[in-house]
Nucleic acid binder design. Structure first.
Length: 976
RNA sequence: GCGGCCGUGAUGGAACAGGUAGACAUGCCGGGUUUAGGUCCCGGUGGGGUUGAUCCCCCGUGAGGGUUCGAAUCCCUCCGGCCGCACCA
């Protein structure tokens, strides 16, 4: 911008420019802050209670996915969703709602740690500095947030309650009969009274030692420590949840290899909620794609367990209850999971995962006579063959397994199991296409009707039997087939035996009959199986919530009493995670908190009546996701020091309501990347808190909206090196950087691609209102679209024209007239009101901007601007461009802010045109237009259309066969 | 491989429930204001044909086919792009 006053500026000293925008915007931002304009009152007399009239209004609770306070600042892509929710929230304020809208910070996480390692600053310091910086950047956008409610997950007063919720989860178990979580104390009471017997294999409650009791309860608790195999990522130095590992078996963050390792880690029993997490999706107003992603991730499938008896070779006693316990001595049982019980007669072999614990028990000393050459893997004994295969499978990474999907490998165990329906002896194989982590880790193979089994059977020359009649004419002999026949809509054949016959039944009937039979025989049962696993909840990090858990001398975990919360992060010498060679699977994690010996080893009185005792603290910290699992609740009641949220306040803002029995936030806007992470975890916590009676809402977010990404052009030179987008010049559709031609592609916006545009640049050139309008006008909120630096000016021009319609650029005087608007203008106004209302409530911001623009353009063409109309226009644009709207509102003589002014209401009489253009088509082709009254009858319109000269000439020599009339918009004439 | 979404001017995108395709904006073209520039103003702008000109005609929503009086919109096949899951029994 030029410093000297130009001639144009001298001619128009009161033009709306970037400088004037900056002045207006900061002035109103200060005003709003001072007035507490956006402070939404809670019901009741609490600290955030307020105006009862406001509380009595219908409420709206709008949220954005809160940001990580990064040190590198914002680019224009970041606030897209924040602007959208702000516009929606402002619209709701003007339509008589008590609107809660704020934004907090998800501030635990790796970047602060890494920054701390580089610079020596404490993560808390850099985090707080970043939050201050981000707050001021966001403030400059004019977002109407209730600042009193903005929380940071790193705040001890916040994570005190994260820890408290963890303890609630730790102290509860899932009662499958009641289908909800209950306090562990109630479970203990049931064990003590004998009302609930201890599970098979355990002594009675009274006979158990304290350690044994703790172990038993650990099998019930919703938060529990276990030694199950976890995802260990040496490159990051921490273990990870399944959701954080990519399909390629690498860490989502950093792309390091991930290995399975047996480590004692904390887990959350999210699997207990699998069914409810699937079922409750139905009532949510979420994008189908996200619901689908969650359904896929949970992976509910209905099927059955089926027992296949197999001779036991070793003399080992039966170790544990369950699958292996049923058979007579010398016999083991392979329990398989299948979703196709109906194909049981077609099961011609059985496969165990290489890690299956039964493998060792069933392998005989020598190959049975006549064993196929291909089955032995060239080994002299089954033991050698299986051991070699197991070693080979263990050494394979997930990536390698993926690569070999087409080529099935495996080896015969030497054992034969009995097919329970046919009594047939079927060979038992070990193969890595069966995964230990899904189902029972064992399958019955039905090669004729499963693609994978078919491929394996072909490779190993195993028999196939067709038991579902192919409907595609391929015949009933699998030997002639290229692939398995898989269908759920077919008839069962070849499935008659001495014990059960299902021939002729449809797949569904056959399934039901087989399941019933299995249950009656006690050799199987219908089960529902899930792909979802429990959520691995501990991390080897410094910058996270410490677990409020201590271990006594016997190693039993105890929750800290509420009075000891928050358990604050201790000072340590070194915050950095201990990382390792990314490929070295043999490493083990080290927790930064363990470096503070004095903090770890403490003497505490936990209030259990046993006085002060020595304890050792848990040194893992919680994953990043913990704080975001419940932060919506804290927005409601951020200063409550007796509970995470007051129940009355929670019910007011989030409780069940008309058509929304689950309750939850009214609108939640954020990116798609959290489909199976944050959004799943938060739903889980929400349900636990609901079950335990702490909240009235069993879903956190009723309506979810995914905003698209703002992309930007990426310019590369001939060597493919990215050049700064700001330095590229365009000439005749070609792009040049320092004289050299460069190529242009669309990509993410960001520093690494040298194409980031910061809000500050746009503020300097145009102002915040222009930025807001441009982001809203670019396209539908849920679609990704490129940032076009040249196009921003269009929205600035709109504001300039709006300004000019109210204010004389030369004098600064208000130039509107107190005249009555003409009919045309009234119709333009009321159509705009009607359209903008619909668009804003439907989150169609781009078309709302277009309608406001149209009305403004209409006024621009008028010689006099009627005050009544322009005032309504100012209100219409207020949610989108609140600063200029306030300024004009003020200049138009209003004393109070328009934030709570009534949004204009359309007069239906003016929403319809006085006359409408009727289209006359002949065979669907446009032939003529007629100006007609909107209330014209079909008959009148038909007569009018047929009488029109254009129709008469076009219909010359033809007769009318049929006329379709859709008064008042259309007549279509069909000639014969 | 399975599942889902999407292809409209030079560009971002409109078109609510099948009924005037291209609203609104950028860019571009022409004109104005200005010493000049544009973050100013006014007008034009899908392609082709025709006319002195208004008019008028034809074509047009990735390609092909279908349903319909009428299709960007519904159905089928194909092509292209994006996303999710992926040996899940």
């Amino acid at each position: 911008m030029s410093e000297t006053t130009t001639a144009a500026e001298a001619a128009a000293p009161h033009r709306y420019t970037a400088a004037m925008a900056a002045d207006i915007e900061t002035r109103w931002q200060d005003f709003w802050e001072k007035q507490g304009t956006y402070e939404a009152p809670n019901p009741g007399a609490g600290e955030l209670g307020g105006d009862p009239d406001m509380v009595a209004k219908p409420k709206k609770f709008f949220m954005d996915m809160f940001p990580y306070p990064s040190g590198s600042g914002l680019h224009v892509g970041h606030p897209l969703g924040y602007i959208a929710t702000d516009v929606a929230a402002r619209y709701q304020r003007m339509t008589g709602h008590n609107v809660l809208h704020t934004l907090g910070f998800d501030a635990f996480g790796l970047p602060a740690e890494q920054y701390a390692v580089q610079t020596g600053t404490h993560p808390r310091e850099s985090t707080e500095a970043n939050i201050v910086n981000m707050r001021s950047q966001l403030r400059r956008l004019g977002l109407g947030h209730d600042q009193r409610r903005s929380v940071a997950t790193t705040d001890p007063e916040f994570y005190r309650w994260t820890q408290w919720i963890f303890l609630q989860i730790f102290d509860s178990w899932y009662d499958a009969e009641a289908d909800r979580a209950r306090p562990v104390a109630e479970l203990v009471a049931e064990f003590e009274s004998g009302r609930r017997p201890t599970p098979e294999g355990h002594a009675s409650w009274a006979e158990l030692t304290e350690v044994q009791r703790a172990e038993l309860l650990g099998e019930y608790r919703l938060a529990y420590a276990s030694d199950a195999p976890v995802n260990w990522c040496p490159g990051l130095g921490t273990v990870l949840a399944n959701e954080e590992v990519t399909a390629e078996g690498r860490s989502e963050r950093g792309n390091f290899p991930v290995f399975k390792a047996k480590l004692r880690q904390w887990n959350m029993r999210i699997t207990a909620y699998a069914d409810r997490l699937v079922n409750d999706l139905e009532g949510l107003d979420w994008p189908e794609s996200i619901k689908l992603a969650q359904r896929n991730w949970i992976g509910r499938s209905e099927g059955a367990h089926v027992d296949f008896p197999v001779p036991r070779q070793s003399a080992r006693p039966v170790e544990s209850a369950g699958d292996a316990g049923g058979g007579p001595a010398g016999e083991a049982t392979i329990s398989v999971f299948t979703t196709r019980q109906d194909t049981l007669f077609g099961a011609t072999y059985v496969v165990l995962a290489p890690e299956h614990e039964l493998v060792a028990d069933i392998v005989p000393d020598a190959w049975p006579e006549g064993t196929h050459q291909t089955w032995t893997g060239g080994h002299g004994s089954p033991r050698d063959a299986v051991a070699a295969y197991q070693a080979q499978a263990a050494a394979k990474s997930d990536v390698e397994r993926q690569a070999e999907v087409k080529d099935k490998t495996g080896v015969f165990t030497g054992a034969y199991a009995t097919n329970p329906v046919s009594g047939e002896q079927v060979p038992v194989f070990v193969a890595d296409y069966v995964l230990m982590g899904y189902g029972t880790g064992a399958i019955m193979a039905v090669p004729a009707h499963d693609h994978r089994d078919f491929a394996f059977a072909r490779a190993f020359e195993l028999p196939m039997r067709c038991v579902v009649e192919p409907a595609d004419g391929r015949g009933n002999d699998p030997a002639d087939w290229d692939d398995a026949f898989v269908s759920y809509d077919a008839r069962v054949v070849n499935s008659a035996g001495p014990r059960i016959t299902i021939d002729g039944l449809g797949v569904t009937e056959a399934k039901a009959k087989v399941t019933e039979w299995l249950e009656a025989q006690g050799i199987g049962a219908g089960v529902v199986n899930y792909r979802l696993r429990d959520w691995l909840f501990s991390r080897q990090r410094y910058w996270g919530e410490p677990f409020p858990i201590v271990y006594d001398e016997q190693g039993v975990a105890h929750g800290l009493p509420e009075s000891m919360l928050p358990l604050e992060l201790p000072e340590v010498d070194d915050y950095s995670p201990r990382t390792f060679d990314p490929d070295d699977a043999a490493t083990t994690p080290e927790t930064p908190l363990s470096r503070n010996h004095d903090w770890v080893h403490v003497t505490l009185d936990l209030g259990r009546g046993d006085g002060p005792r020595a304890y050792r603290r848990e040194t893992n910290t919680m994953p990043n996701w913990a704080g975001s699992c419940w932060y919506e609740l804290r927005y409601l009641d951020p200063r409550n020091d007796e509970a995470p949220v007051d129940p009355t306040v929670e019910r007011y803002w989030m409780g069940p309501r008309e058509g929304i029995p689950h309750g939850g936030v009214d609108l939640y806007v954020g990116g798609q990347e959290h489909a199976v992470l944050h959004l799943l975890y938060a739903r889980f916590w929400s349900k636990v808190l609901f079950d335990l009676g702490h909240t009235s809402s069993s879903e956190p977010f009723h309506k979810l909206y995914n905003q698209g990404m703002i992309q930007a052009f990426v310019y590369r030179d001939r060597r493919g090196i990215v050049v700064p987008a700001a330095e590229v010049e365009e000439r005749d559709g070609q792009y040049f950087h320092r004289g050299e031609q460069v190529s242009r592609q669309l990509g993410k916006m960001g520093k690494s691609l040298k194409n980031a545009v910061t809000p500050d640049e746009i503020f300097a050139d145009y102002g915040a209102d222009t930025l807001r309008l441009y982001e809203m006008a670019m396209g539908p909120l849920d679609v990704s679209r490129p940032w076009d630096p040249r196009a921003v000016v269009g929205q600035h021009r709109l504001l300039q024209r709006l300004w000019r319609n109210v204010v004389d650029e030369a004098t600064g005087e208000v130039r509107v007239a107190d005249t009555e608007p003409d009919e045309d203008t009234l119709r333009a106004l009321h159509k705009a009101i009607d359209g903008v209302r619909q668009d804003l409530s439907g989150l169609r911001f781009n078309t709302a901007v277009a309608k406001v623009t149209e009305l403004n353009n209409h006024l621009t063409k008028q010689s006099v601007v009627p005050r009544g109309v322009v005032e309504q226009l100012v209100l219409l644009i207020a949610p989108l461009a609140p600063h200029i709207a306030e300024e004009l509102w003020h200049r138009l003589g209003h004393e109070t802010s328009l934030v709570y002014a009534d949004f204009p209401v359309a007069d239906p009489a003016y929403v319809v045109d006085e006359s409408v253009t009727c289209v006359v088509q002949i065979k669907g082709k446009l032939k003529a237009r007629l100006e007609v009254s909107p209330s014209i009858t079909d008959a009148d319109l038909e007569a009018l259309a047929l009488a029109s000269p254009a129709v008469a000439s076009a219909m010359e020599g033809m007769s009318v066969r049929k006329v379709i009339v859709r008064a008042p918009k259309l007549v279509n004439i069909v000639p014969s």
